[in-house]
């Protein structure tokens, strides 16, 4: 190795010396005498103390206890009423409608969103323009207005027909009001609105995949559709999923907006009940608790789905909470992930 010496002269005239190379100064610390060190076996580790952490823990625990105490003892929460209505037949029917709307609008929304994302990324200016306009229109109008518009479509167009444009050929014709029920209006409004948002999420995910992946697939002669579904989308999923679950969870609660169509999903059902019984807060609590339950289930699903799509991107998958719990509670032995989830050694 060579010694490089660079001596620029600074403005003030002093010399600034930079020396790189072998350190030739005398070694000033002698290695310790091994005989003087205590043997490791006799040494115990004393953990460091964190008094601040303890104080914080106590304060937060007290606050939580206070909240729990007030929830349990304030009679105005009317927990008895909550319990009575929580599993009532009408509430469960409403819940089912909410789930139905979420599943249908979510599925249609994301499928259409995927197509819109591909259109937006295509080379055709028309497709790009249409996809952009779709997102623009549906993201800039309130969902409430969209729902009312769909429901009142009969006012704008009396009949809906399917046929060949500019001729009298009609394959199908029906009056708008019979075709667009409350359910149809709700599904249309929620799906199209969802599609506009999911298109952007999916597009973002696709853009996050390295361009080299598409290039490699093209160089191997893999057809375009397969490139998208087999190579790009699974990798894009890692970026798509957190946002997509945000959207789905938003959609679960967003379905409550369709109460304006007097569609008897969970929120509308609860409103009908409290208008009759005047137990407003406990019944809102019933609906809220169900939304919490759905969201919790979705959050757990999200964890496992994200874990599935992280294959190949991490060297070894982390243990699931359940596996970790078993590792902590069970007999003290090495915990190994089940063979199906184990990633082979490098």
């Amino acid at each position: 190795m060579s010694v490089i010496t660079d001596t620029p002269v600074l403005d003030d005239g002093t010399e600034h010396r930079l020396t790189l190379g072998l350190h030739t100064g005398a070694v000033d610390t002698a290695p310790p005498d091994p005989a003087a060190l205590p043997p490791a076996a006799e040494l115990r580790v004393v953990k460091a103390r964190h008094p601040g952490r303890w104080v914080g823990t106590v304060v937060v625990a007290l606050l939580l206890a206070g909240v729990a105490w007030s929830l349990a003892t304030n009679p105005r929460w009317e927990w008895g009423v909550v319990a009575q209505w929580f599993t009532a037949q009408s509430v469960l029917t409403g819940l089912l409608e909410t789930l139905k709307l979420t599943v249908i609008a979510g599925t249609l929304g994301f499928l259409l969103g995927f197509l819109l994302a591909l259109m937006r990324l295509s080379t055709s200016p028309l497709l790009v323009g249409v996809a952009w306009t779709f997102s623009w229109v549906f993201r800039s109008t309130p969902l409430l207005v969209q729902l009312l518009l769909w429901y009142n479509l009969g006012y704008l167009y009396e009949k809906i027909s399917l046929g060949i444009p500019f001729t009298d050929v009609r394959f199908f014709e029906a009056s708008t009001t019979t075709l667009i029920s409350q359910f149809a209006a709700a599904v249309l409004g929620l799906s199209l609105n969802q599609a506009a948002y999911s298109a952007e999420i999916i597009r973002g995910g696709i853009l996050s995949v390295d361009a080299g992946q598409l290039e490699a697939a093209a160089a191997l002669g893999i057809p375009a559709w397969r490139r998208n579904t087999r190579i790009v989308l699974p990798q894009a999923m890692r970026a798509i999923l957190p946002n997509a679950f945000n959207e789905v969870i938003g959609l679960v609660k967003g379905t409550s907006v369709v109460y304006v169509l007097a569609y008897s999903e969970l929120f509308y059902t609860v409103q009908v009940i409290y208008n009759r019984t005047q137990q407003v807060l406990p019944l809102l609590l019933v609906a809220t608790l169900w939304y919490v339950v759905i969201t919790s289930v979705l959050s757990i699903a999200q964890y496992y789905i994200e874990r599935h799509f992280s294959r190949g991107s991490v060297r070894t998958l982390p243990l699931t909470p359940w596996q970790r719990l078993r590792a902590n509670l069970g007999p003290r032995r090495a915990v190994v992930a089940p063979p199906s989830e184990r990633t082979p050694e490098a």
Binding site: A218, A219, G221, F309
Partner: peptide
């Protein structure tokens, strides 16, 4: 695409598909 199957290409950055074995 059919032409390309007769022409192998090896990239500087490998470009293996990370989510596939």
């Amino acid at each position: 695409l059919a032409t390309r199957t007769g022409i192998g290409f090896v990239f500087q950055n490998f470009n293996l598909f990370p989510h596939l074995t």
